[in-house]
Design a protein around this nucleic acid. Structure first.
Length: 392
DNA sequence: TAGCAACTAAACAGGG
DNA sequence: TCCCTGTTTAGTTGCT
């Protein structure tokens, strides 16, 4: 009935890399059907982000020669991101942001309508406990973060609960309805796939859930555009109203007045971009082995703003109700049912010359990081210029 | 005001 | 029987 595209993907924060998947059932990247044996950081899908230490420092220990293709990005990680924290409680008091205050919330009613006891959901300026504030993320994003944080990129529901509870203590005191919402999201959101636990793995009820790689590009695209409203307000030139084509915050220089927190947002976002850039080259239905980085043609990056917010816009089998968000839920579930059997999903995203798009992503990410470090590259400048021209 | 997206609640079924 | 998991439906809320 409902469709939950991960469109409300706020900035990725709270990615404390020290949190390895405690799940005994975490077993490698999701494939079509059962999970391969790929494990944690040694997995070909484990990217540099997985090697970021708790302080944000990047460990070079896992850098393989083949990673040299991404040397420049690793440099960014090492030199620019060491001071950024993904879920660094020391600097940010946890992965939470004060959605009750200046940061606002992606949605008016937040993640829990239960007006939870512990949340001082008062007016801006009232006493706020960030650790007890409603997370400014949709459940889709929470799930996404949880799954992405796991070395195997897959988690059982229970571990998703655990991750959310661990990173968002708000839920520890919230009514248990949020768990229902999590399950509901997993079931309905097409971005999440259910995979069967591999044989011989730790038993347990339920399946593992992972992020559908096909949706990662769109997720990333959404990430770029779904910044905090207030942050976007910082970044959006007054002359032009916020739009889907508005550049992400990181395309603006620091002088334009977004705070370090927003820098962290974009750092995290950029990290996700960088991280995903290597992952999204996978055709999940044709390739279960290591990533072929040369297969950039598989990357799908939509430039259609509508597609950023509605995965049902993906050309699926025509349906008179397909245009409505609620209808696609059934489709998604049917599709997932098919995926579980290893069959290709009926979804076939339109691929329009995606290779430059990936480069764009990488350039933007790199430019973002450089900007965060106060480095203005000609690349970034030219891109900003072109962006501004595009908006005109 | 309509459409949409996201959230909540609830019911239900299946399995451990 | 209880709990967990997963699915489905219905309703609400806020935004555009």
């Amino acid at each position: 009935m409902h469709e939950y595209p991960p469109s409300l993907m706020g900035p990725i924060i709270g990615m404390s890399p020290d949190k390895k998947a405690e799940s005994p059932g975490s077993q490698g990247m999701c494939g079509a059907g059962t999970l391969p044996e790929a494990e944690s950081a040694s997995s070909p899908l484990a990217t540099s982000l997985d090697r970021i230490g708790p302080s944000g420092a990047v460990s070079r220990s896992g850098l393989e020669p083949e990673d040299e293709e991404l040397t420049n990005l690793n440099w960014l990680h090492e030199n620019l991101l060491q001071n950024f924290t993904l879920g660094d409680a020391q600097s940010c008091s946890g992965p939470l942001f004060d959605i009750e205050g200046s940061m606002g919330s992606p949605r008016g009613h937040g993640l829990s309508s239960s007006s939870s006891s512990s949340v001082s959901s008062g007016s801006p300026g009232s006493e706020r406990d960030p650790l007890k504030s409603k997370p400014p993320f949709s459940f889709s994003l929470l799930i996404y973060m949880a799954i992405e944080q796991s070395p195997s990129k897959s988690l059982p529901v229970k571990d998703i609960y655990g991750w959310i509870l661990e990173h968002f203590p708000y839920f520890s005191s919230a009514p248990t309805g949020w768990k229902n919402s999590v399950r509901h999201n997993l079931s309905l959101n097409k971005c999440f796939r259910k995979v069967e636990r591999g044989l011989g793995k730790a038993n347990g009820k339920g399946s593992l859930w992972c992020v559908h790689p096909e949706f990662r590009p769109t997720l990333m695209q959404a990430l770029k555009k779904q910044h905090f409203p207030s942050a976007q307000a910082f970044c959006t030139p007054p002359a032009s109203p916020p739009s889907a084509s508005s550049p992400p915050c990181h395309l603006f220089s620091l002088e334009q007045g977004y705070s370090l927190k927003e820098c962290d947002f974009d750092a995290a976002t950029a990290m996700m971009l960088l991280k995903s850039a290597s992952e999204q080259n996978i055709d999940p239905y044709e390739q279960e082995g290591p990533i072929d980085l040369s297969r950039r043609d598989l990357v799908v990056v939509s430039r259609d703003p509508k597609q950023d917010h509605n995965y049902s816009s993906v050309p699926v089998s025509p349906s008179p109700r397909q245009t409505t968000g609620s209808s696609a839920a059934t489709h998604g579930q049917q599709e997932r049912a098919g995926w579980a059997n290893g069959s290709h999903p009926p979804l076939k995203r339109v691929r329009h010359d995606p290779k430059p798009e990936l480069d764009e992503e990488l350039k933007e990410a790199a430019g973002s990081l450089l900007h965060l470090a106060g480095i203005c590259t000609s690349l970034g400048a030219s891109r900003r210029k072109s962006r501004k021209l595009d908006r005109k």
